[in-house]
Computed example of a mutant assay.
Amino acid sequence: MIRQIDKILTIFEEWGIGICMVVSLVVLVLNVILRYIFHASLSWPAEFSTYLMILLVYLGSSAGIKHDSELKVDFIVDIFPRSGKFFALWLNIIRLGACVIFFWAGMSVVQMEYAFSNVSPTLRLPLWILFGILPFAAVLFAIRTLLSFREIFAGRSSGKQEG
């Protein structure tokens, strides 16, 4: 069951990142072609690609948790190699707490945007849908963190990225 969740998340992250990159690239290239060859540019591609890049960053961050490649200061683990598991546990506890705060804050923003019925400037999309990426990302991060706990307790992660 745990491996299936990991596999599904990995497929979702990898395909999501790829689709966001390709769609953003195609939309921006088409707009450049329209602008410089046909002298007529569209107003929405910049905003659309910005939202895709935001989603891409959150999907990439979730994948980074899986691969233990997020930004961290690991000089203590270098000095005291046996402390890797301890610090990995603390990192995951702190990350899980941050996920809770991130989810709560994201839901607050989503509720506020929904109440005010705000829309994006060019695409006219409801902002509560766009800001829904925040709690969604928090759930992805939390799931990845819980899976990371499992790796630590199974002895497959020392808290230090190899390579």
Rank of each mutant, 00 (worst) to 15 (best):
L91V: 09
E113L: 08
L71W: 03
T50H: 06
L96H: 06
R124K: 14
P45D: 02
G64T: 05
S24G: 15
I79F: 14
A98Y: 05
V29L: 12
Y58I: 02
L89A: 07
Y36T: 09
L34W: 09
F80K: 13
L59Y: 08
A115D: 13
N92P: 03
I94K: 02
I54M: 04
V73P: 00
L96C: 08
F80Q: 11
W44P: 01
G64A: 15
V22M: 12
A115T: 07
R124L: 08
V27E: 00
V100C: 10
F12C: 08
Y36K: 09
R35K: 14
S41Y: 03
F38H: 12
D74F: 06
K85D: 04
V77P: 00
L25H: 01
I101A: 14
P121C: 03
D68R: 05
V27G: 00
R124I: 08
V27S: 00
S69N: 13
I94G: 05
F86S: 06
W90V: 15
V29W: 04
L34G: 15
L127N: 02
L123W: 08
V29Y: 04
Q111I: 02
I94S: 06
I19L: 14
C99T: 03
V109I: 14
W44F: 10
L71T: 10
S117M: 06
F12L: 14
I54C: 03
L34E: 13
D68Q: 12
Y36M: 06
F75R: 14
W44I: 03
M53K: 00
S49K: 01
I33L: 12
Y58L: 06
G60S: 04
M21D: 02
L91F: 11
A98N: 08
S69W: 05
E70L: 15
L25M: 14
V77A: 06
Q111C: 04
D78K: 13
L30M: 12
I79R: 15
I93Y: 10
Y51I: 04
S41W: 05
E14H: 10
W15F: 14
F75C: 01
I101T: 11
G16L: 06
E113I: 01
I37R: 12
S69T: 12
F38Y: 15
Y36S: 05
G60K: 03
H67V: 10
K85A: 07
I33T: 08
V29H: 02
G60R: 05
S43A: 13
Y114D: 00
I33S: 07
D68M: 09
V119N: 03
L71R: 07
L56P: 04
Y114W: 04
F116H: 07
V29N: 01
H39Y: 15
L34N: 14
S24M: 11
M21Q: 11
W104Q: 09
H67L: 12
V22C: 10
L56M: 07
Y36N: 12
L34F: 13
K85C: 05
V32R: 03
I17L: 12
L125P: 01
F75Q: 12
L28V: 09
L96A: 11
M112Y: 13
S83M: 13
S43T: 06
S69K: 11
F75S: 15
P45N: 02
R95E: 00
P81G: 15
T50K: 10
L125T: 07
S41H: 05
V29C: 07
L123N: 09
D68S: 10
G60H: 05
L71A: 10
L25A: 15
L125V: 14
V29G: 00
S61E: 03
